[in-house]
Design a protein around this nucleic acid. Sequence first.
DNA 1: GTCTATACTAAGATAGAC
DNA 2: GTCTATCTTAGTATAGAC
Lengths: 195, 195
Amino acid sequence: MARKTGSHSEITGPLVLNAAQTLFARHGYAAVSMRQIAAEVGVQAGALYNYTRDKQSLLFDLMKTHLDDLFAAWTAVDKGQTPTERLEAFTRFHIAFHLDRPDAVFIAYMELRNLEPQNFEVIEVLRKTYETELENILRDGKDSGEFTLPDTKLATLAVIAMLTGVTTWYRDDGRLSRDRVERIYWNMVRKAVGA
Amino acid sequence: MARKTGSHSEITGPLVLNAAQTLFARHGYAAVSMRQIAAEVGVQAGALYNYTRDKQSLLFDLMKTHLDDLFAAWTAVDKGQTPTERLEAFTRFHIAFHLDRPDAVFIAYMELRNLEPQNFEVIEVLRKTYETELENILRDGKDSGEFTLPDTKLATLAVIAMLTGVTTWYRDDGRLSRDRVERIYWNMVRKAVGA
DNA sequence: GTCTATACTAAGATAGAC
DNA sequence: GTCTATCTTAGTATAGAC
C-alpha cells in the first residue's frame, strides 16, 4: 500500500480513522503506535498529523461517531408502539447494529479508560442517553402492567450486558444466523422482564 | 513507600503482583510501565526482575491465579442439588465472587488480547471450563423439564454476560446491597430460563 | 535483594524540504 | 499533502556494585 507524494485529502482522512479503528480493536489503543497506523494507511507517521491533532483525538472521534450513529439509528427504528413491541425492536436493533460494527463496539466498551477526562465525560453522556432509551421502555412497560420487573434500573443494565455480550462470540459462519440469534435473545429477554 | 536496601523476598513478591493488578486494572496492561509498578511497590524497576521473568508473566500469573481461584471456589460451593437450586447458587456465587475481586475480574475480561498466544490458550481453557459448569446446569435443567430454554449454549453466554456486567456498575455505597442485587438478578435469571 | 547506571528500542510529535 | 529527519521522552530489560 505504499503511496507516492500527492494530494489525497478527500480519502486519506477516512482511511486514517479506519486503520485506527481496526488496529485499536485488535491490539488496544495503548498498544498501537502512530507508526503502525501510518503503515496501514500507506503513509509516513508524520503525515497522520494532517488529519488528526493527536492519537487521543483518533480514539475520541471513533467513539463519538459510533455513539452518535447508534443513537441516530435507534431513534430511526423506534416507532410508537406498545412497550413489548418496542422492547423486541430494541433487542433486535441492539444485536444487529452491534454485530455490524464489531470493531467500533469493541473500542467503545474496552477503551473508555484511555479517554482523557473531558473526552470521557462527553462519551459517558452519550452512552447513558442510549441506556436511558431502554430504561424508559422498561419503565413504561412496568407502569402499564405489561412487564413484571424487580428493579427497572438493574433490568436495564442486565439486558444491555446480555445483548452486548453477543459481540464477543458471534461469528457469521457459526451455528446460528443473526435472525435466529435475535429470536433466541428476544425469547430470553421477554421472559426475563415477565412480558 | 521508599525502601532502603535489604532482604524482603517473602513479602515483595506478592506486593509486586498486587501493584501490577491494581495498575493493570486501572490503566490497562499496555499503558502501565514496569517503572510505575516498581514505584508502587517502593523499589527500583530493575528489582522487579527478581520476582518475575518479564511483564507478560505478571499478566499471565494474575489471570491464571484468578481463574484457578474462581473454579476452586465454585466447586466448593456446588453441592448436589436440583438444577434450579444449582442455578441460584451459581448466580449468587458468580456475582459475589466477582464483586469481591473487581481488579482481577477487570483484567481477566479486558486483557485477553494482550496475552501471548501460548498463554492465551491456557487461560481460554480455564475460562471455558468454568463456562461449562453453567452450561451443564442449564442442560440438566432442560433435560429434566425444570427449565424452558430456546438454546442452552446461548443461554449460558447470556447469563454469564448478564451476571458479569454487575461488576461494571456496582458500588458498595450504592442504592442496593449485594444481597439485594443477587436476589434481583436471580429473579431475572430464573424467569429467563423458564424455571 | 536492591541499588545505580545503562544498553537498546520505540514511542508521540514536529520541522522543513519538495 | 507527504516525505525524511529528528527532538524528546519513555519503555523493557540487563550488568555489576553493595
